[in-house]
Nucleic acid binder design. Structure first.
Lengths: 212, 212
DNA sequence: TCCTTTCCCGTACGTTGTACTGAAACTAGC
DNA sequence: GCTAGTTTCAGTACAACGTACGGGAAAGGA
């Protein structure tokens, strides 16, 4: 029988609430006070379930990273497809990923699948790890751009206006002719072609490496 | 003739001091108070030269990004070579780059050179911009790993020990055989081969894109 | 000398993460 | 029904952060 006062919450529940806040309002909106309010709890109560905020972020990434085969597929391309789907669902992930400690079963499983997909290359272990890290970084970059582009089309006219305003002077100076041309084309971005770019990136990373 | 009280500092000088702090002790050590102390100035005096801390970071990136042909070379490979040299000299750059507003002549010139290197592809403007953004993201990822690896070899045994400790249980469970094998190989990282990986990445990004 | 302009910077406020501390709620043993 | 032991809850408090405000200081022009 469990002794002591019974917990009013659970760790996964708290992490889920944190994820919900970050999903809806971004990482900056996720403060310990805000999270406590959302859970009708005292701020310090959270620290019973979570060592500190870093730990909370670690758990958020871990909890969100449950493998869903419907998102991905086989091989490295399946892995990056899954990563992209994850980051599109949780736009805070690219910003949160650096400095994370990834020791949970979901992230380790994900790493294991990546290593499995690299088995046939015969590369040394560290080289495999490097490739997986670079791929994750690539997906994070790609999705960050993707999200910004998507937002730019809809709202955010204020920020865009500021940006253009600040660049206009420089662009009109004639010192940056190619940049000027791109700006004049407007922001009619072509379809992102994630699949194509990702598979070329994978092929490039797997090409005959001298270190192998 | 300039009227009013003469400035005790200059903006480039303040930005240079900020860069020095970040170089020596990392981005976290760079606070407005610390910077003021370093300059023998009052904290609020800094705000005469800089709108806010975001602006300071923007200027740091801009000021550090002066083009030095000795670091780079021609084409995209020269560009990423230069970026890598820059980030190795200023390890805070990968972390600082997201959310920056890059409107200064150095960054615009860098962008213009990138567009020039992509001229021959005939790609639409937004596609070129995307390629440049992805390349920068790749270099940032690569250098981040590189720096961590380099540090791991020398100091930081504390952090490594913690990490291994936390992973040991999971690894020993037998659920992650490939990960276990990599861990057992030790961290004898092979030479990073930046040139090789970077040129393959460029080739991949430039490959026949359906959107082009 | 006085006015205007510009920069300097001490004080102060709101926000953040979290250490400390004691109250509260439960079980186990008597 | 106590009492002791154990665990969680949460209010208070503090240090550090970015920075708004406003008055004082130092220069040139009239």
């Amino acid at each position: 029988m469990p002794r002591g006062r019974p917990p009013a919450h659970t760790r996964p529940q708290i992490v889920a609430a944190a994820i919900a806040i970050a999903d809806a309002e971004g990482l900056d909106a996720l403060t310990m006070r805000r999270l406590a309010t959302e859970l009708d709890a005292g701020v310090m109560s959270l620290y019973t379930y979570v060592r500190d905020k870093e730990d909370l972020l670690d758990q958020m990434v871990e909890q969100v990273s449950e493998f869903d085969p419907a998102d991905g597929g086989d091989g490295l391309i399946g892995l990056v497809r899954w990563q992209r789907a994850l980051m599109l669902r949780h736009p805070w992930m690219p910003a949160a990923l650096p400095n994370r400690r990834l020791g949970g079963p979901n992230m380790l499983g994900h790493l294991e699948r990546g290593l499995a997909a690299l088995e046939h290359t015969g590369l040394p272990g560290p080289a495999k790890m490097e490739i997986l890290a670079l791929l994750t970084g690539f997906v994070a970059s790609y999705v960050s751009n993707e999200v910004v582009q998507a937002r730019a089309g809809v709202t955010d006219t204020q920020r865009i206006a500021e940006h253009v305003e600040r660049l206009r002077e420089a662009v009109l100076s004639g010192a940056y002719p190619r940049l000027a041309k791109v700006m004049s084309e407007g922001a009619t971005a072509p379809p992102p072609n994630f699949e194509a770019i990702a598979s070329r990136m994978i092929a490039g990373l797997l090409g005959d490496r001298p270190g192998g």
